[in-house]
């Protein structure tokens, strides 16, 4: 176990290092930092001056080494645009995005898995078809559209939820539903197909034949095996939610790291980008570990390898 944890930790560090190197160079080629820092009406001289003042005229390797050296000691530097340190900026906005993504994921699991099971129990029935149509066709609706439609209906016309902002839990209802909606269909489809496969497997038939009660068979044996890929997918979906949060946060005017990341990428605010990537990458490593552990618990045979 200790060995396992250590290996995962090393992996995380390696991923973080790779991502930070790649991101650093990508940001550099995607536009001049000094130009975006100086603003749209700056002259060439302003830009040169800023380049010098911020040390952007030094070789890129040196700049990266500088950043890395500080980051290792826990200093993530200062944003080029905001007066705050990157850590203040990111840590003040992280909770909103996490809350959003968590509620989105919970919604999609709560909707996706039961509907997937029902659909598998009655394959090609009207409920299966309906669930599929609603779920799948909606994938073609972009997030901003869905978000604004819900906003117009529930906030503007019905007045049930606030239009925008993130001050209370009520502000999170529509964004979380929007976000969750997009993760539901793959989860639902995978559950359905997994269940279909497992239900026709011999051991389930045997279990039924032996006269075991259907509910325990369904949940203890069938679902347990069917959701293994779903668990893995859910971990990725959570990550996709962080990027889906970009649009949601901008539509609902929420202060999260999704929109901050987007803004920072467009402005080449390198220190902020790096820190957010670092956090995202830690989440992935953690989620991968978590989903592996959950799956090993669901199916002990996976552990043996």
């Amino acid at each position: 176990m200790l060995n396992f944890a250590l290996r995962r930790f090393l992996l995380a560090a390696l991923v973080a290092l790779t991502v930070s190197i790649v991101a650093f160079f990508l940001v550099r080629v995607s536009g001049d930092l000094a130009t975006s820092l100086a603003g749209q009406e700056a002259s060439a001289e302003d830009i040169e001056e800023i380049r010098k003042a911020y040390g952007l005229d030094r070789p890129i390797i040196v700049q990266y080494a500088d950043w890395l050296g500080a980051a290792v000691q826990g200093d993530f530097g200062e944003s080029l645009f905001f007066p705050d340190t990157v850590w203040e900026l990111v840590s003040s906005r992280l909770p909103t995005t996490l809350r959003l993504a968590m509620s989105g994921l919970i919604i999609s699991l709560l909707v996706g898995i039961p509907f997937g099971v029902i659909a598998a129990l009655r394959p090609n029935s009207w409920i299966d078809r309906l669930a599929m149509t609603i779920a799948v066709a909606g994938q073609a609706i972009p997030t901003f559209w869905m978000g604004l439609m819900l906003m117009v209906l529930f906030s503007l016309m019905l007045g049930w939820t606030p239009i925008s902002g993130d001050e209370s839990w009520r502000h999170f209802i529509l964004p979380a539903v929007t976000l969750g909606y997009y993760s539901t269909p793959p989860i639902m489809r995978l559950t359905r197909s997994g269940m279909l496969e497992v239900l026709s497997a011999d051991y389930i038939r045997t279990a039924y034949a032996k006269g075991l009660r259907p509910m325990p068979v369904l949940f203890k044996h069938a679902l347990r095996n069917a959701v293994i890929p779903v668990v893995a997918l859910a971990s990725v979906q959570f990550g996709h939610m962080l990027s889906g949060a970009i649009v949601i946060e901008s539509v609902f005017a929420m202060q999260g790291i999704g929109y901050l990341a987007w803004e920072s990428i467009l402005r080449n605010d390198i220190a902020v980008i790096q820190t957010i990537l670092l956090i995202v990458c830690m989440f992935y490593v953690f989620l991968t570990v978590l989903s592996d552990l959950v799956n090993a618990w669901l199916d002990p045979r996976i552990r043996v390898s």
Binding site: V19, G239, I265, L266, Y284, T288
Partner: peptide, 19 residues
């Protein structure tokens, strides 16, 4: 491979696109 996957997942597409 987990390393490759995680690295990819942590890399925002927007950043790659703009570059």
């Amino acid at each position: 491979i987990t390393f490759i996957i995680t690295t990819r997942l942590s890399m925002p597409i927007v950043l790659v696109a703009l570059a």
